[in-house]
Amino acid sequence: MLDDVDRRLLRYFQSDPGASAADLAERAGLSGAAGWRRLERMREAGIIRGVEARIDWAALGYAVEVSLRIALDKGEARAFDTFLAAAREVPEVIEIQTFLGRVDVRLSVLARDMAHYQQIYRDRILALPHIADIEALMLVARVHHDEALPL
């Protein structure tokens, strides 16, 4: 699948996703064209899915982040799908994850402050369908966040 040159190219891409293909290729010891072809092949294979902007929400006034762990009442056949569709409509929900186990879904919610979070929680979260149990975990500090894997 990937050879050592691909892995080296991906390492440089992970550390500097804004770099040009020519610059990444040079760092990996390739010609610009060869580096571009390899990166393009990895995009087409779905290995590289895109480049994202990382926004510092706290700098924009969103100081509260809460992780909600939700167990659903799955008595209705489409409860899971209905809940997920409704959760996608809450603008302050920035991430939705599904699980197997006691917790079915985890929502990441951003708010400006605690009053704003309480409003979101009461007006939008508690209005979501099929919630059997909900647990809120307030983010205190992000100690480590890195999506890069050693290649």
Rank of each mutant, 00 (worst) to 15 (best):
R41L: 08
L9H: 09
A85C: 00
V105L: 12
S108V: 12
M114Q: 15
D23T: 15
V5L: 15
A53H: 06
P150I: 10
A87E: 06
A87Q: 14
R38T: 14
E26L: 13
A19T: 12
R8Q: 13
P17R: 11
A21N: 11
D81S: 13
H145M: 07
E135Y: 05
H130E: 15
A34L: 03
L107D: 09
R41Q: 10
V64F: 08
E95R: 12
D123Y: 05
S31G: 14
E92T: 04
R27D: 05
R106Y: 00
A148N: 02
I47R: 08
T98I: 08
S15H: 03
A127G: 06
H130W: 10
H144C: 06
L30K: 11
L24K: 07
G101F: 10
P91K: 01
K74G: 05
R112N: 10
L39G: 02
R88S: 03
I94F: 02
P91D: 03
L84S: 01
V93T: 03
G18R: 15
V5E: 12
L100R: 06
G18F: 15
A19W: 11
G50N: 09
L149M: 07
G75N: 14
R102T: 10
K74H: 02
R102A: 08
L126A: 05
E147Y: 00
A85F: 01
I96L: 04
F13D: 03
A136G: 10
I55V: 13
R43P: 06
A87T: 13
I120Q: 02
D73I: 03
D6Q: 04
G101S: 05
A19M: 13
A111V: 09
L128K: 10
Y62D: 02
A25N: 07
M1S: 11
I55T: 04
Y117C: 05
A21C: 01
Y121R: 00
V93A: 04
L151F: 13
M114R: 14
D56Q: 01
